[in-house]
Amino acid sequence: MAIEAFLSTTAQRAYLGTIAIQAIVVLVLVGLVFSWVDAWVDFSRTIYKTIPCYLALFAFGEQVSPSSGYPYKPLTRPSNRIFEILMAVDGLRARNIIQLAGIAIFHGCLIAFAAAQVHETKQALSMLGNCDYDGTRRSYIECSGAGTLFAKIRPLLITAPCVIAAAWLSLLWWTKVLFAEFGWAIFHIVGANPAMKTMYRWYQVIICLLKFDFFFFAGVTMQLLILVVSRNSAEFGITITAIPIVLVLLSFAAIAVQREIRWLMSVSLVLMLASETYLYKLVRFFTPPSEDTYQTTRITLALFTICAFLILFATFIVGLRCFGDFDKGLKPSKVHGQSLLPTPTAEKINLIGYNSEAKASGGSTGGAPLTSRISIE
């Protein structure tokens, strides 16, 4: 059995290609939706901000746009698309099947998020209800029947989750194939000891969770910046500053679990538990006086906040599990895992029941007993 090079197999190329292709398709669909709506509505009004929120999670960063009246007009560079592609490349390079499984779960969440946008966009645009376009600007924007703005963008909104779902089914299949392909790499990193393999799997789980923690925190923060935080307020600066701070804290947690630094891991676990109090934001989405602010983005924000809470809580639980595995001999595998792998495609295992001399003599070994031999070339 061989250790295959990065992207040298059909399964690896198909996995990454699936993510890349659906990323391009979905980004084009969402970009068209945003451009068509941007031409007709004022995004400075809270009720219309579901569209910028939708694209902001498919885009990277914001820029000031004096002409739109809305200071956080997203660029057309993918964010969760880039995040997902980088996670896939990292998982394939590290032969981390846990991370690939995490991407599959993450992809499932994207389906729910994209599907929710159909309802939220209709709620934002259809203030006059299910009426048809009657030739007036108001009916074109605020009705949802034939000939209206929503009728124009609805096929694109529906197509996006369908494309993501189709890609998800493909990813599930290729993840199954890669599970078998990557199993041999884990053997080289931690050996044949089942206990060590289990501990290493838990280590892979927490590293994966820490990466998703940052994405969901950034996703919630981005939506809050678009919706409620004034650009000139102190809260805006604090919220922006929180993103790199959280990134640093999560990086420290990753270093702590990899290097088995007990004091740093203890601090990280305490901070994770304290961060769970952020769930109070969920209450604000549904209670006065702030509920009107989140009228058309409540479902998306609630979905992201709940996911962020659950993933952070899972990270805390898995962190406790990994903390209990400190000083049990796994540290060298964590720190030098990839360097322990042999040169890709250079290793082969041959189970030989007869030695070469026996084969040359037609199976005779002069009466000496035959023994099984494992040859590693």
Rank of each mutant, 00 (worst) to 15 (best):
Y278H: 05
E291K: 10
M272T: 07
T287D: 04
T300A: 15
T296W: 11
P344L: 03
L310N: 06
Y294H: 03
T343D: 04
K281H: 11
L303V: 07
C307H: 09
L312E: 11
V270G: 11
P332K: 02
A308R: 11
L269P: 14
I317G: 06
Y280N: 05
P288E: 00
M265Q: 15
T293D: 14
L264A: 12
T343G: 02
M265T: 07
T277Q: 06
T287A: 09
R321L: 13
C307W: 10
F313C: 04
S290R: 10
S290F: 15
V283M: 11
T343L: 04
R284M: 11
G337F: 01
L301M: 14
V267N: 12
S275T: 11
P288M: 02
S333H: 03
L264G: 04
P342H: 06
T297D: 09
S268R: 09
L340T: 00
L264Q: 02
I306S: 08
F304P: 05
L310M: 07
H336D: 02
C307Q: 06
A308E: 13
H336P: 00
K331C: 05
D292Y: 02
F313R: 00
L303K: 08
Y280K: 13
K334E: 01
E276L: 09
A308M: 14
L340D: 03
L264K: 04
W263L: 12
L330C: 05
Q338V: 02
C307F: 11
M272G: 13
Q295F: 12
T293E: 12
T287N: 04
F326R: 08
T315S: 15
A274N: 04
L330D: 06
C307P: 01
R298Y: 06
L279W: 10
L341I: 03
I311A: 07
L341Q: 00
L341M: 03
F326D: 12
L330I: 14
L301I: 09
V267C: 13
L312N: 15
W263E: 14
F323I: 10
Y278D: 07
G324F: 12
G329H: 11
I311M: 09
T305K: 12
P342Q: 00
T315K: 11
W263H: 14
A308F: 13
M265V: 07
T300L: 13
T315P: 01
L273Y: 13
Y278L: 09
M272F: 15
W263Q: 14
L312S: 12
T345F: 04
K281I: 10
C322S: 12
M272R: 12
T296N: 15
Y280C: 05
E276W: 07
T293K: 15
C322E: 07
L273T: 11
F316W: 12
T300W: 15
R298E: 10
T293H: 14
A302V: 08
R321W: 06
F285E: 01
D292L: 08
E276T: 01
L273V: 08
F323T: 05
P289E: 09
L273K: 06
R262Y: 13
F326L: 06
A302P: 11
P332Y: 03
C307I: 14
V335I: 01
P342C: 07
F285M: 10
L330E: 03
L341C: 00
T296V: 07
P344Y: 00
S290Y: 13
S290T: 14
F309L: 05
T293G: 14
A314F: 09
F313S: 01
S268N: 15
T305V: 05
F316Q: 00
F286N: 02
M272H: 12
L320P: 03
K328V: 14
P342T: 04
Q295P: 05
A346H: 03
T305G: 10
